[in-house]
Design a protein around this nucleic acid. Structure first.
Lengths: 327, 327
DNA sequence: ACATCGAATGATACCGGTAACATGTTATCC
DNA sequence: GGATAACATGTTACCGGTATCATTCGATGT
C-alpha cells in the first residue's frame, strides 16, 4: 500500500480510503489510485484490516455433519441470506459429539469470529466456559435449548415427534417402535425418542419400544440393517417411528426385500422432510422442520444483532406433519 | 497475552513460546503459564499470528454444492486428513456456476489462503487471472482439467461413463438415453454426457438421446419429473443413463409409479455411488468414484507441498462400476 | 580461576492496514 | 472581506502477536 501511495503521490491513508469507497476522497484521486494499484498488481490484505479493526468478518458455525441434507440446507439458508454482508463463514463439523464440538469451538474462537452459531442445545462445560469468557453473540439453532447460551432459533423435537405419534394413533397404530441412534451422542435424536414416548403415554398407548440402530449419525444403512436384524419379526410392531427420513427410507427398502407391505403390514414414519421422503415411492410420512428457514431466521437475527437492533431471545419455527403413503 | 504474562511473572515472549510448544521454555514455566491462561480464559489470537507471520493458516476450498453427498464426502475426507495440521478450511459453494466461482475466489483470496482447492477444471478467464497474479498452490479436483492451473486429483468423467455404456451394451441395451442437467452449467455432467455418447459410437450403438432434466443441480425430483414427463413413452428407450444416483433414484421411483418394471422394461444407471444407490430396492447400478478418496489425496498432496516435497502434477483415482439390480 | 557454552528468558521492532485527530484548501454566507 | 463550514488529505499511534537479537546464569572443561 505504501508503494501504491508513493506512486500515486498520496499518503497510505488516502489509498486506504480509496479502497473503502470512502466518499471523502475525491473521485479523481480515487480513480488515479485505483488505476495505479491495478497496474502494480496490488491486492488488498483483509487480514491486516481484520487485525487492525478487530473485526474479523468471520461467522463461526458448527454443524453435526455437513453430510446431512437437513443441516446442509440450514447452512445454505444461512449463507445465502448473509451473502452481501461480507461475512465469511467458518464451518466446522462436530460429528455429533460434544467433546469434538468443544475442540472445534476452541479452534474457531482463535479466529475471532464476530458471532458463533451452534447446532443443538447441549454442550460441554468447557464449551460453556469458553463462550462465557468472551463477549460474543451466540445463537443455538435446531433445538430450543433448556439453558440457552444466548439466542436460539429452532423447534421442539419432542413436540414435533408428538405430531407423528398422534397421527399414528389416529390411524389405528398401537405397537410403536422408535428407531434411532444409541443413547447419548445425538441429543436431537434423544429428544425425539423422549417426545414419542411421552406422547404415547399421554394417549394411553403401550410403551414405545426403543430400538438402537447404532452410533450416530444413523442413516439409510442403519435403517435397513435394523429391519433386517429383526427380519419378519419386525411385524411385532405395527409402526416404526424413525429418527430421520434416511433411516425411514432404509427401513422401507428392507421391508420391500422382506416382502412386507408398507403401510399395510407396517407403518413407517421419518423426520426432517428430506428429498428422499418426497421422491420415494411410496412417499414417506415425515415432519417438515423448515431446515432452510432455520438458517434464514438465524441470518436475520444476526443481521439485526450487528445493526444494534433489539432481537428476540428465541425464535420458534413451526414443525409440520407431512403425510405420505407409508402410514 | 500481556495480562497472562504479567500474572505469570514472565514476558509476553515466553508466553508466546509456551503456547507454541517451543522446547526452549522450561517445562515448569510452560505449565505455570498454561494454567494461568486457562484460569483467565485466555485464547490466543490466531489473527494476530497470521498477520505477523504472514501465514494465514487458511485453506480455501470451493465446491459446487455442499448439499450433495458426493462433494460433502470429499470435503470430509479433506478436512479429516488435514486435521491436526492446524489448517482452517474456508469453504465456498459455487452453485455450479463459474461466474459465482470467480466471485468466490476473489473473496477467498483476500483472506490470504495458503492454498486453493477448486472442484472442476473449467473456470472463467477472470478466475485464471486472479490465480495467475499470485504465487499460490492450486489443486483442481474431481475433473482432470484439460488446461491445469496447478495440481489435479480426479478421474475422467468420460472414461467412467464409458464403463456404464459398455455394461449396458453387454447386457443387450441399445436405445440409450442420457438424463442430466441442461447444457452449460455443470461441466462434470457435460463430460459424462459426452463420454456416454462417445462410447456408444465406439461400440456401434445408436446415438444416445440427450434428455434435459433441468438446471443444475439436478436431483431426485428432476429424475422423477423427467420420467413422468414422458410417461409410459419412456419405453422408447431401453436404458436411462442418469448423470447421478439421485437422478436415477428419482427416475426409478417414477417408473414404479407408472408401473414400469426395472430393469425388465427399462434399465436405469446412476453415478457417484451415493448411499441411496446402495440402499434402494432394487439397488441402483452406479459408478464409484471414490469421493472420499479424492479428498484424502488432495490432503496428502497439500501436506507434501507444504513440507516442500516434490509432488506429482496429477493424481488419478480409479472409477469402478458397481452393478446393482436396475440393469 | 577463567573462558566457553548452552539453556532460559527478555527487549525491541515490526507485520499492513485504519481510527482518531490534525491540517490545509476551497466554497459559502452575511 | 472575514468568519465559518465543508471537503480533501496527512500524521501518528496502535491492533496482538512473533522474529531476531541480546542478556543472564549455571555448568563444564582446561
Amino acid at each position: 500500500m505504501r508503494d501504491v501511495a508513493r506512486a500515486a503521490g498520496v499518503s497510505t491513508m488516502t489509498v486506504s480510503r480509496a479502497f473503502k469507497d470512502d466518499r471523502s476522497v475525491s473521485a479523481e484521486t480515487r480513480a488515479r489510485i485505483r488505476a495505479q494499484a491495478d497496474q502494480m498488481g496490488y491486492i488488498y490484505d483483509s487480514l491486516a484490516t481484520a487485525f487492525r479493526t478487530q473485526k474479523s468478518g468471520f461467522l463461526a458455525v458448527t454443524l453435526p455433519s455437513i453430510n446431512n441434507a437437513n443441516f446442509a440446507e440450514t447452512y445454505r439458508g444461512l449463507t445465502q441470506a448473509l451473502e452481501g454482508s461480507g461475512m465469511q463463514m467458518l464451518l466446522g463439523a462436530t460429528g455429533y459429539r460434544v467433546e469434538k464440538e468443544e475442540e472445534l469451538v476452541r479452534q474457531l474462537l482463535t479466529r475471532n469470529p464476530e458471532a458463533l452459531v451452534l447446532t443443538g442445545g447441549h454442550h460441554t462445560v468447557g464449551t460453556r466456559d469458553l463462550i462465557a469468557a468472551r463477549d460474543l453473540p451466540v445463537v443455538e439453532m435446531w433445538d430450543l435449548p433448556f439453558r440457552p447460551l444466548g439466542h436460539a432459533v429452532g423447534f421442539s423435537n419432542a413436540d414435533a415427534m408428538a405430531l407423528v405419534v398422534r397421527h399414528l394413533a389416529e390411524t389405528g397404530r398401537k405397537r410403536l417402535a422408535f428407531v434411532g441412534a444409541a443413547e447419548g451422542a445425538d441429543s436431537r435424536g434423544a429428544e425425539r425418542r423422549a417426545g414419542a414416548a411421552a406422547e404415547a403415554r399421554r394417549l394411553g398407548l403401550p410403551d414405545v419400544v426403543s430400538i438402537d440402530a447404532g452410533e450416530a449419525p444413523v442413516s439409510m444403512r442403519h435403517g435397513a440393517a435394523t429391519v433386517e436384524r429383526f427380519g419378519i419379526e419386525i411385524r411385532q410392531f405395527d409402526a416404526l417411528i424413525c429418527v430421520s427420513d434416511p433411516v425411514a427410507f432404509g427401513a422401507l427398502s428392507a421391508c420391500r426385500r422382506l416382502g412386507l407391505a408398507v403401510p399395510d403390514d407396517l407403518a413407517i414414519s421419518g423426520f426432517g422432510n428430506f428429498e428422499v421422503a418426497q421422491i420415494s415411492e411410496p412417499q414417506i410420512t415425515t415432519v417438515d422442520v423448515g431446515a432452510r428457514r432455520i438458517g434464514e431466521e438465524v441470518a436475520g437475527l444476526l443481521d439485526a444483532l450487528f445493526s444494534g437492533d433489539t432481537v428476540p431471545d428465541q425464535i420458534t419455527v413451526a414443525a409440520k406433519l407431512i403425510r405420505g403413503a407409508t402410514t
